[in-house]
Computed example of a mutant assay.
Amino acid sequence: MLDTARRAAIARLNDRLRSTGEDGWIFLSAGVAALPNAAKDADMRAVRLFAAFTPDNDLHGEHDCAVVAVEDHRIIWKIDYHPRYRSGADPDPADPATTKRVMTIMLAEEY
């Protein structure tokens, strides 16, 4: 797969997890989990709707991480890749059959 096509495929798969919660796991850090429900909802909505990717915040064009200001705090969300079946083989982020996506949403100060 060509590099640009590969990165676009990875970005689409990352966007799907981020915007729908499908095809992966989403974890909240202890700091985010401790926030009031309204703040957690606002954080999740900000992550789900994030579309302000630029070369400055998305160097590789894979939509795998960003920092977002939400109300009175900043959050970071990050998507990591793991082997889907614990095979020990390196996951291929462009192949959903081999890769389990895991997104963590955390307060910026927890990073």
Rank of each mutant, 00 (worst) to 15 (best):
M1D: 14
M1K: 11
L2H: 14
L2K: 14
D3V: 06
T4C: 06
R6W: 15
R7W: 01
A8Q: 13
A9N: 09
A9K: 14
I10L: 00
A11Y: 10
L13R: 10
N14Y: 13
D15Y: 09
R16E: 15
R16H: 14
L17E: 00
L17T: 02
L17P: 00
R18T: 09
T20G: 09
T20S: 15
G21V: 03
E22T: 02
E22H: 12
D23T: 03
G24I: 07
G24F: 12
W25K: 03
W25Q: 08
W25T: 06
L28A: 06
S29H: 07
S29Q: 06
A30D: 08
V32G: 04
V32L: 05
A33Y: 10
P36Q: 06
A39L: 13
K40E: 05
K40H: 08
D43M: 08
M44I: 13
A46S: 14
R48V: 08
R48G: 04
F50A: 06
A51K: 15
F53T: 01
F53D: 00
T54H: 14
P55V: 02
D56T: 08
N57I: 05
N57P: 08
N57F: 10
H60Q: 08
H60W: 10
G61K: 05
G61Q: 05
D64G: 08
D64R: 03
C65M: 10
A66C: 08
V68W: 12
A69H: 13
A69E: 15
V70P: 13
E71S: 11
H73G: 05
R74E: 15
I76T: 13
I76F: 14
K78V: 06
I79M: 08
H82L: 10
H82K: 02
P83W: 02
P83F: 01
Y85R: 05
Y85G: 02
A89S: 07
A89C: 00
D90Q: 05
D90F: 04
D90R: 06
P91G: 03
P91V: 00
A94E: 03
A94F: 00
P96K: 03
T98M: 04
T98P: 09
T98H: 07
T99H: 07
T99R: 09
K100H: 12
K100A: 14
M106D: 02
M106Q: 13
L107W: 09
E109K: 08
E109D: 13
E109C: 03
E110P: 07
E110R: 06
Y111N: 10
Y111A: 11
Y111P: 00
